[in-house]
Every structure is written in structure tokens, then in C-alpha cells.
Simulated assay, not measured.
Amino acid sequence: ISISATVELFQLIMYTPIFTLGLLFNAMALSFLFFKVKKLSESTVYMVALIFLDTLLLFTLPFKIISYHLQDQWNLGSVFCSTLESLYFVNMYGSILISLCVCVDRYIAIRHPFTAPTLRSIKKAAMVCAIICLGTSAGTVSTFQLHGKGHNISSCFHNFSKSTWQNAGLFSALEATFFGSMATMTFCTAQTVRCLRKHRKPDNPQTHTTRAETIVVTNLVAFLVCFTPYHLAYFMYFLVKNNIIHTRLQQVLRDILQVTLCWANLNCCLDGACYYFVLKESMEDPLQTSV
């Protein structure tokens, strides 16, 4: 089944600014880290890891545009396609987990300041990032089998094999990663905001604490807005592909899945922009280094 022309146009319109602005914002955040932030912290370690993963994902987007334009005439090789798909999907879920770590780290720093020194350290943050990168990289085994074993790939980034859609283990792992992260981040954000409001000065509402609240909530909202539609669409499409629910709208669901996957990549832009302003704030107020 070919992807509708409307979906292809939507992807072209979305991916072009996501690619250019994503690289720009991530480069700005990274340059700020290296040239302006003099003291390394747990938050900056996670930010570097997140920027790195987002940037790797961004570099696959031009090829994703090409693949949808070529449809079933992909001629850049099966190994290259599987490598691109691996970079794309592995780094997306790596970014989700690093975003979770950023949220939990700031929750510990703000909500539990007395136990934070024993729970947080730059070395521990680096180890967590390394574990996440290595763990998600293990997913490469699955991405190299998305089109089936031993098959010559004629369409990259779509038309995955029947066995892929019947892989309940892969489906469960991806959905559990997102919804588990979403639940944890929602809890940590609510507790962090609650703590920040306790320290807000009633006579001066426009404090750094108030700006910290805005940053914390904005991070969560961006995460939810970007990733929730795709994982709901993936859930529905998985049920349809495995005949758990029956509908004549399979093509519509397929298009929705592609649109929401495209929308999810907007997070690469928002991450870079958000952390650039977080770092800019941190130069003005030490509290922001925890935020």
C-alpha cells in the first residue's frame, strides 16, 4: 500500500524545518555548554547526551524524505537503510529515556536536596547515559530485522514485514518505555512544581522560581505533545494488523501513524531550544542549574 500524497507532503513540510531548526538549536545549546557553562553538572551531562542523540536522529531525516519520495524503489542498499532505521528509532527511544533522566534528576535535586548529594553525581549521570546508549543500541538487532531476515529492502522506513507487526515483545517494550516514562515524568514534574511553589515569594511572583516552574512544565508538555499521538496510533495500528480489532480504516490508520511519527520528531527541535534557554537562565541564577 503506497503512502498517500497528502502524508508525503506533510512530511516534507514538517521535516525540512525540523531538520534545519533542530540542528541550529542543538548547535546553540551545545556551544553554550562548551563556551559559557564553566562548571559541569549532572544536568549538563544529560543535556549533552540528549543533544547527541537528537542530532544523530536529525541526520536521518533527509534520507527519510527521500525514502518516501522513492516509495518502493529504494536503491541505496539494504544495509544503509537498516543503519538509517536503527539510528532513527534507537535514538528516538534513547532521547525518551534521557528526557526521563533529566526530569528525575531535577526532581531529586529540588524535592530531596538533603539526599541529593548521595544520589546525584557527574560520574553517576555519565554512567546512566552510557547504560542507556548501550541498552538502546542493543535494539539495533531488532531494527535490522524490520523488513524480515534476508530480504532485499525496496522501501526504507515503511512497509515493514508481517513478522515485525506480530512481534508482541518489541511492541510491548516500546510502549512500556514511553508510557512508563510518561507516568514517571508526570509524577516528578508535579512534585517539583509543588516544591517550587512553596519557595515562591508572595510579594514578588515573577521570580526565578516562577521561571523554573515554567521550564519544568514546558519540558513535560513538549514531551507529551510530541510523543503521545504516535504511541497511541502505534497501539491502534498494532491491534489492527494483528486482527485484534477489525476496521476498514487500515489505510487511514497507517497514514495517521506516519503523520504522528513525523510529528514526534518535532521534539528534536524543542529539546535544543528549551535547553538553550535553560542554560541561558543558569548563567543568571544558580537555581536553574538544577532545572
Score class of each variant (00 low, 15 high):
S4A: 07
A5K: 03
P17C: 02
F19Y: 11
T20C: 06
N26M: 03
N26I: 00
A29W: 04
F32Y: 10
L33D: 04
F34K: 02
F35K: 04
V45R: 02
V48G: 06
V48K: 04
A49P: 06
A49W: 03
L50D: 14
T60Y: 04
P62W: 09
F63H: 11
I66A: 10
I66K: 08
L70E: 12
N75S: 15
S78T: 15
L87Q: 03
L87P: 10
L87F: 15
L97N: 00
S99Y: 11
C103L: 03
D105A: 06
I110V: 14
F114P: 01
S121Q: 06
L134I: 15
S137C: 12
G139C: 02
T140S: 08
F144G: 00
I153C: 11
S154W: 05
S154F: 07
N159D: 14
T164N: 05
W165P: 12
Q166H: 15
A173N: 10
F178D: 05
F179Q: 00
G180Y: 10
S181Q: 09
A183H: 00
C188D: 04
T192S: 13
R194A: 06
R194K: 10
C195A: 09
L196D: 06
K198D: 07
H208F: 09
R211F: 13
A212N: 09
E213W: 01
T218S: 14
F223I: 04
L224P: 01
C226R: 06
Y230G: 01
Y237F: 14
K241M: 15
I245Q: 10
Q251F: 05
Y275S: 10
Y276Q: 11
F277I: 11
L279F: 12
M283V: 13
T289A: 12
T289H: 15
V291S: 06
